[in-house]
Amino acid sequence: MPFRIRTLNAISQTGLSRLPADRYLVGHDVAQPDALLLRSASLHNQPIEKSVLAVARAGAGTNNIPVPEYSKRGIPVFNTPGANANAVKELVIAALFLAARNIVPAAAFAHRLDGDDASMDKAVEAGKKAYVGFELPGRTLGVIGLGAIGVEVANAAASLGMRVLGYDPAVTVEHAWKLNSKVEHVTNLDQLLKRADIITLHVPLIDATRGLIGAAQLAGMRKSAVLVNFARG
């Protein structure tokens, strides 16, 4: 009899293809499942069948799963840290360019232009200085959280010529070895916030990180600093 797996979100067919059809019955409407497979669906306050033996998340964080409750029931929860690290890194680097070069407001400005060529040329010349922004090389990026994603972001930023500060009290030896040697290890969060032109967050949403950045931390940042949050919370 095949193992029964219920999917609670759309899962890449590339991943599902690793579950042979002769051994696994997989689908969103599978009854009495042996396991649940999900991405962002929340299982908090959601009853699950007694048949469930395991829960797996296609992603790193498990804040959408009541892990302590399932642990009491003997249900292991699996995650896939690092599986989407490159994808998130690319989004973060894109966000750095968007913020540094004022691309979104500049595009909105261009979209509002109206009139003939001469009048639009005049408007562009008069308004373009407001969207110059700044170049990334030589600027300081503060990376909070040096897990799989944080390391990828730090290394990519260093390759762009940025000065990179890394903060993570719980960084693993494995991830530390993967860091570019140019990344400066900072042990004081307030110092990182004070020095960085751009701060990017890459921490899980757990009790220890909830409220990590609040009013006091924002007040300690540079007036012109940019905060990028691709983490949870």
Results as ranks from 00 to 15, higher is better:
K129C: 14
N84Y: 09
L98P: 05
A108R: 11
F109L: 08
A110N: 13
K129I: 15
N86S: 09
A108M: 12
D116H: 06
A108I: 09
A87H: 13
N79L: 01
Y167Q: 02
G127F: 04
D117Q: 14
A158Q: 06
L91V: 14
N79D: 05
H111I: 13
G145R: 00
K89R: 13
V171M: 04
R101M: 05
A176M: 05
Y131H: 11
A170E: 12
L165G: 01
L160I: 06
F97R: 13
A154I: 07
E174V: 12
K128G: 10
A106F: 09
L141T: 08
A118R: 12
V151K: 00
A130N: 11
V153P: 05
D121P: 07
D117A: 15
H175K: 07
T172Q: 02
G138E: 14
G115L: 13
G145K: 00
I149Y: 03
Y131E: 07
G115E: 13
V104S: 08
A100G: 05
K178L: 11
E90H: 15
D114I: 10
I103S: 08
D121K: 14
G161A: 07
A170S: 15
N79I: 02
R101T: 03
D168K: 01
V164P: 01
V143F: 02
E135N: 06
D117K: 13
G166H: 00
D116K: 06
P137R: 06
M120L: 03
L113H: 08
V124K: 10
I149F: 04
G145C: 03
A157I: 08
L136I: 09
I103H: 07
A108L: 11
P105R: 05
L165A: 04
E90S: 15
A170F: 15
S119R: 13
L160D: 01
A123I: 01
A123Q: 02
D168S: 05
A83V: 09
A94Y: 14
D116A: 08
G166C: 00
G150F: 02
V143Y: 00
R139H: 14
K122G: 09
A130Q: 11
V143Q: 00
A154S: 10
I149H: 03
W177F: 11
L160S: 03
T140C: 11
K128M: 14
A157V: 10
L146W: 01
I103L: 14
V104F: 08
L141C: 11
V153I: 14
R163D: 13
A123F: 01
F134C: 02
D168G: 04
G142W: 00
N84K: 11
F97Y: 15
T172A: 04
L141W: 04
H111R: 15
G147F: 04
M120Y: 05
T140S: 08
P81V: 09
L141R: 03
H111K: 15
V77N: 12
D168V: 03
L160N: 01
